[in-house]
Design a protein around this nucleic acid. Structure first.
Lengths: 129, 129
DNA sequence: ATAGCGAGCGTTATATTGTAACGCAATAAC
DNA sequence: GTTATTGCGTTACAATATAACGCTCGCTAT
């Protein structure tokens, strides 16, 4: 049972959910000026909470954030992202099989993973034409 | 046959090679003040070149750079990194098998990959004790 | 009830990371 | 030798992120 979101957290999540692509923290801030969001820490605190609860993801290679679209994302071992350099579209995928290979490496090397980042940069099918 | 590196490129590569962990662009700059490096663009331009030639890697989740330690890194399909949150140590690994799973996904989805980022954050064996 | 705790808020200021743009110098290509 | 390319040094700035302070609110253990 996750607790209800606060006003700021809801504003940030809604903005990300409505966006059709990843947004930077500062563009979220700009979008929410009229809603009372005034300064970066307010956005970053909301983002931090939403990240912790898994409602959004951070794209490390873009310094940007995106709402999670996978209803049962948390049940997947790892999540990957394919980012199109041309149109900016981002696809989220569940790395069921990849996870197994990673787990093997972790076991072999005694590494205890807390967070996994998988990001593919390239050209999506529609943009390839 | 790679071309010879310039003075600045050599300085940056040497700094990264001597470091026992990832360095930020600005800490490289600080290390090289005495060698004549004065401003960020000089460092960033050297980093850009070294990245392109595969002599160093960028750790997206750290905004930091590290010298490549894998002699035949370029021959591997994808490279992954395991980053210890405790000691800061970074292990580079070749994702031979992972690459296959990724390729399957790419083929299924018609996505043309240009660059792959795989980074594991966690605790390394020595730090687990 | 109430005192304390934790989480979040609003704010100011600052730290960190990365680029744009200029003119010049060295090098490589023809 | 002229011409393209690449890199250099510099100034200025943009973009991303955090520190720190004091305040409010809701919870909960005494």
């Amino acid at each position: 049972m996750g607790k209800a979101l606060t006003k700021n957290q809801t504003l940030v999540l809604d903005t990300l959910s409505k966006a059709d692509g990843p947004l930077s923290a500062y563009s979220i801030l700009d979008d929410l000026r009229d809603e009372g969001m005034q300064a970066p820490p307010q956005v970053y605190r909301a983002l931090e909470k939403l990240l912790k609860t898994g409602l959004i993801h951070r794209l490390e290679s873009l310094n940007a954030y995106i709402a999670c679209r996978d209803p049962d994302c948390v049940s997947h071992p790892v999540t990957g992202f394919a980012i199109c350099e041309t149109c900016g579209d981002v696809s989220e995928f569940a790395g069921e099989k990849i996870s197994k290979q990673l787990k093997d490496w972790e076991d072999d090397n005694g590494f205890l993973v807390e967070k996994t980042t998988i990001e593919l940069r390239g050209i999506c099918r529609p943009c390839k034409g």
